[in-house]
Design a protein around this nucleic acid. Structure first.
Lengths: 111, 111
DNA sequence: CACGTATATACCTACTGGGGTATATACAGC
DNA sequence: GCTGTATATACCCCAGTAGGTATATACGTG
């Protein structure tokens, strides 16, 4: 599957992306931090690279990978039509929490 | 694969969700508007239902499906750490989507 | 140049998951 | 009841893909 959605369906790939979100890293660093085998990391990185999620900078024998945001922006854009449900949901949750609070004054609502 | 990301990896499921985003629909309506076979629609709807993306209201023999936003909110939340990359690349997304669109027509050879 | 390190790739295997056809179930109207 | 409609499910088949092991490639250092 070549869509951005197919790419991030894989948990290990999401984990890689999440790590790279905070800072760029080498293959080795990813391998250790995610406790995956090196070929597995490389394979996932290749998929991510080809799909435009990451790019690599060469540093001697190392490849330092970093995020390229475009495909994730595409996912973000796809979510747009659904965002109108967010507010409704949040409102419903707030009303719910208000009722809870009124019914049991003194008890702290969670979340 | 049971994560929300795995669920929306499937293009037909995304199409179903996108249709439901504007309004609730019956299985038949989805079947026609997406030109899919009925069992296929039902199967995808079952996956979506079990993962909490949709719910069905019974109307005689019909089931009217509608969006439940929670799993998509989860996806939205996952994107949060990456949003700091957005601003720098706003117009890069346009170029990216143009390229995607160009790559569409015809089946491309694989690697 | 030999050796260790860092990364990529090839190859095989096993599993999953989607498509299709046929069938079951549920309901409505006559 | 019988018939048509609406939806779900069972079953089979096949392609894609992730994991693992072994190997290739590239680079740096002594």
């Amino acid at each position: 599957m070549e869509s951005a959605f197919g790419i991030i369906a894989e948990p290990n790939r999401r984990a890689i992306l999440s790590l790279l979100a905070s800072s760029e890293r080498t293959v080795r660093e990813l391998e250790h931090q995610l406790r995956m085998t090196q070929p597995s990391v490389s394979k996932h990185l290749r998929v991510l690279r080809r799909a435009g999620f990451v790019e690599a900078r060469v540093d001697a024998q190392r490849r330092v990978y970093r995020i390229k945001p475009e495909p994730l922006m595409e996912v973000d854009a796809w979510l747009e039509p659904f965002r109108r449900y967010w507010s409704a949901h949040v409102d419903a949750l707030e009303r719910h929490l208000d009722r809870m609070q009124q019914a049991r004054p003194g008890k702290r609502a969670k979340r």
